[in-house]
Amino acid sequence: MRLVVADCAARYTGRLSAQLPRATRLLLVKADGSVLLHSDGGSYKPLNWMSPPCRLAVADPDDEQVAAGVQQVWTVQHTKSDDRLVIELFEVLHESAHELGVDPGLVKDGVEAHLQELLAAQITLLGPGHTLVRREYPTAIGPVDILARDPSGGTVAVEIKRRGDIDGVEQLTRYLELLSRDPRLTPVRGVFAAQEIKPQARVLARDRGIECLVLDYAGLRGMDDPTARLF
């Protein structure tokens, strides 16, 4: 990755036209060919950029640009379209290059698969006497996250989300309608489990006779320390 901090201006043409007036910015040139211009604000989003496939050409300024104080001209041309990003560098304040190597990618913690595994291992969180039938119980419209039995022998279908919204309740409703047709499983009730359940989802679940269960990921992993709580 090449990092350049420079006093620069930029002009983008192609599907749209946009300009960045002269200011100090960070220019990133990545190994995949992408070029991004960042300011010191605006969080992670660049002010402008060119995504690959593209090529970068560095040239000397013409007479008019020299008169304006331009030292370098970067032209980033997309190879499959007319999109072009032209960057005029007036002064380079910093320049460095770093070999980052192959990135392993983002490893997410607390995704639905983790929650499913932990809840299956602690199935009594559904209530005393509950037992696990299986995870990813297959149906004609997709797998139910967890299928369990309650103490009376009834079937419990559990749909797990990180953030529970109306769509998740609708999904569980379809599972319940299908499972209820199987005489081996009836009676069937549903539990909508998530780390966070939106109020609208709670209302819809209650209207359809579905229970809601808020999952504490740290607690499921045994990392919750009750002595560290204020309340």
Rank of each mutant, 00 (worst) to 15 (best):
G164F: 07
D32C: 03
L179G: 07
L213I: 13
V203W: 11
I197Q: 15
D103I: 02
S81F: 05
G209R: 08
L56R: 04
E112S: 09
R22E: 06
L125K: 13
G190S: 12
P104I: 00
Q71Y: 00
R181N: 14
D225H: 07
V86G: 05
L178H: 14
L89F: 00
S43W: 07
R229D: 11
F231P: 09
L89M: 05
I123K: 06
E117M: 10
I141H: 10
I141F: 01
L176M: 12
R2S: 02
A201D: 15
Q200M: 14
Q122R: 15
A68V: 04
S17L: 05
Q122H: 13
A59K: 15
D165G: 11
L85P: 02
M1A: 02
L106E: 15
T227L: 09
K161C: 07
R11S: 03
K45P: 05
P143G: 00
R221I: 08
S17T: 08
T75Y: 03
A9Q: 00
G42N: 11
G164Q: 10
A18K: 12
L85C: 02
H38D: 01
V156Q: 05
D165F: 04
R149C: 10
R22V: 03
A157Q: 08
A23Q: 08
I197H: 13
T173K: 13
P128F: 13
R221E: 06
L56Q: 04
Q116G: 07
V169R: 09
E196F: 14
H114E: 13
Y12P: 02
L230T: 10
D182W: 07
L132S: 11
